[in-house]
């Protein structure tokens, strides 16, 4: 059976659905019996969701003005 360490190493592949069906079944079986790995998987998903909402770099206003001028010139 898949060890916890191996499951943790493959967790992103599982979450991103980039895993073969066979491997996926192995992971699901392991998760069914292992509370620590179930928690890890949930925590990693939460971490990824948090990262997705962090650090959204906004377009500087000066850049928007400059690009609008360029866009108007091209008309």
């Amino acid at each position: 059976m898949l060890s916890c360490k191996h499951l943790v190493e493959q967790a992103s592949e599982y979450i991103d659905e980039e895993m073969s069906t066979g491997k996926r079944v192995q992971v699901k079986l392991h998760l069914f019996v292992c509370v620590s790995c179930r928690r890890y998987m949930k925590q990693l998903k939460l971490t990824i969701a948090m990262l997705g909402r962090k650090h959204h770099h906004q377009a500087p206003e000066e850049m928007c003005h400059h690009l609008l001028k360029e866009y108007q010139k091209a008309e």
Binding site: S3, C4, K5, S36, R39, M50, R53
Partner: peptide, 25 residues
Amino acid sequence: PRFDSSGHWNQRNPAWDIGSPDELL
């Protein structure tokens, strides 16, 4: 260090108090 030589967790992985990305943020 989270795992022993056979690849099992050394200690049970504790649950987090926080349950949503917004709470984390």
